[in-house]
């Protein structure tokens, strides 16, 4: 089924450049745990589902944009962990998923990422991570 929120359209199915984060040690403190997760990759996405099987149109769209750019990123599936699902919203003071982070800094959700992609700022922000020609 096509995703009505995919701004790239269905013709674009680049290889997946994202990978689900595997948590090694879980800190007891939720805030510390989130910091550990966010810090595991310069480009990080909290999403519903995984890059292979996104469970929400907005999450799928952000993955599609990142795959299209070909930047390496890691993801966390909030549907698999209720602590993080709520915790990440408190951490960023942002009420929705997906949430996109670069070098630990919250950048935005789907709308912001889409707008930054469309005006070229996302490419600029991630230029050090783009695949070399």
């Amino acid at each position: 089924m096509s995703n009505p929120f995919n701004v790239l359209g269905d013709q674009s199915t680049p290889p997946n450049s994202g990978q689900e984060h595997q948590e090694q040690e879980k800190s007891e403190n939720l805030n510390e745990r989130i910091k550990g997760i966010v810090g595991s990759s310069d480009i990080f996405l909290f999403m519903k589902g995984t890059p292979e099987a996104p469970q929400c149109g907005f999450s799928a769209n952000v993955c599609a944009l990142l795959n299209h750019l070909g930047v390496p990123y890691k993801t966390f599936n909030v549907l698999a962990d209720m602590d993080i699902r709520q915790g990440i919203k408190d951490y960023s003071n942002w009420p929705t998923i997906p949430q996109f982070y670069v070098k630990g800094q919250f950048v935005g959700g789907n709308d912001i990422i889409t707008e930054l992609y469309e005006n070229g700022e996302l490419q600029e922000m991630l230029k050090d991570y783009l695949p070399k020609e």
Binding site: W94, P95, T96, F106, G108, G109, I112, E115, L116
Partner: peptide, 14 residues
């Protein structure tokens, strides 16, 4: 900034 603009709206709809 865009994020601040969106935050203003998000805060209301939270």
């Amino acid at each position: 900034m865009l994020i601040e603009q969106h935050r203003m709206v998000m805060d209301i709809l939270k």
